[in-house]
């Protein structure tokens, strides 16, 4: 997923308290503008909240300071020059609230308060950017580690033939979860850094097989994907009604699906032929009364050919 979309999501997920600066420098209203200048310079900041007896009464920035300097009023108190009743943000609001507030001109920082309106932080545009970048970096790093751990399994485990077996139970008629197994297989293969074209072929084949079980097998079934260094073997077993005529079933367009299956968008008679066109080897067995067994192999040595 592109990073920009994740950043957009994050401004809704992250709270203001996650990104704000917690150590807030404040000033009392009685100090002079000259004293304020020293405080801003010392801390290299461009604005501070004004607190009187712990209560937020105003905010004053470097802009106010410049105006006072131009007017020759550096001896005036902060109280005279500050913005009263400043706009503030609540700590538990999502960052997007702050982003919207910053769109309006004239706002460089917002005091952040808790639900008792006590000042607990301050937020600038820089805090938001830094917070988002940190979060994105952490997420990127987590996915990198997963990639690293998963994709090196075949190098780290030494044997004559290492394979990773993924086993999924498929529940009959469970339309809510239909497709989850294939989705998880796709995720695992992606983490194993198997080339996309291969992952896609496996995903389509297992999804068709999964839907076959969900729709046709009364007792459900099982999908096993065995990942080997050079190939992926998919084994699908179910205890459904079986297939009366395999040759006929393989024909594109042949279907025994009922109306409700077709309404779901399946049962067009393309399932088995779709599986066949995605895989390099395919074997289908269905002895009468024992269900169906499908084995398919996808080679990993060619660059996604098929």
């Amino acid at each position: 997923m592109p990073g920009i979309t994740r950043a957009q999501e994050l401004v809704y997920e992250l709270k203001i308290e996650d990104v704000m600066t917690r150590e807030v420098i404040t000033v009392p209203p009685q100090i002079s503008m000259t004293e304020l200048r020293e405080i801003l310079r010392e801390h290299r900041i461009s604005g501070v909240p004004v607190l009187e007896n712990g209560v937020l009464v105003g905010i004053i920035s470097i802009e106010d300071l410049i105006k006072a300097l131009a007017a020759g009023e550096m001896g005036a108190t902060v109280e005279k020059k500050m913005t009263r009743d400043p706009v503030f943000l609540y700590a538990d609001e999502p960052v997007v609230m702050a982003v919207n507030r910053f769109r309006r001109p004239g706002f460089g920082r917002f005091p952040v308060v808790d639900n008792g309106k006590n000042l607990i932080g301050i937020l600038t545009r820089g805090d938001i950017i830094e917070g988002l970048l940190k979060k994105l970096e952490v997420e990127y790093h987590e996915e990198e580690i997963r990639h690293y751990r998963a994709s090196h399994i075949f190098e780290d485990i030494v044997s004559d033939c290492t394979s990773l077996i993924l086993r999924y139970n498929i529940v009959a008629r469970d339309l809510e979860h239909a497709g989850e197994a294939s989705s998880n297989i796709k995720l695992v293969l992606t983490r194993l850094e198997i080339p996309r074209q291969h992952v896609r072929r496996v995903a389509i084949a297992t999804y068709e097989a999964e839907m076959n079980i969900v729709l046709h097998a009364d007792e459900g079934g099982e999908i096993v994907a065995e990942v080997q260094p050079r190939q992926i073997v998919i084994r699908v077993t179910d205890t459904g009604p079986g297939i009366a005529d395999i040759e006929q079933a393989m024909q594109p367009g042949f279907s025994t699906a009922s109306r409700w299956m077709r309404e779901l968008g399946f049962g067009a008679g393309m399932g088995l032929s779709n599986i066949q066109s995605c895989v390099d080897e395919m074997r289908l067995e269905s002895p009468p009364g024992t269900g169906t067994f499908l084995e398919a192999v996808i080679y990993l040595n060619r660059e996604g050919e098929k």
């Binding site: 239909a178 989705s183 796709k186 995903a203 389509i204 999804y207 839907m211 968008g265």
Partner: peptide
């Protein structure tokens, strides 16, 4: 891969199919 689907079907299997087919 990369294409857009137009469909009149609305169930979650639409999303699954799109996901599998990239």
């Amino acid at each position: 891969p990369g294409s857009v689907l137009l469909t009149g079907l609305c169930n979650p299997q639409v999303v699954r199919s799109v996901e599998m087919a990239d």
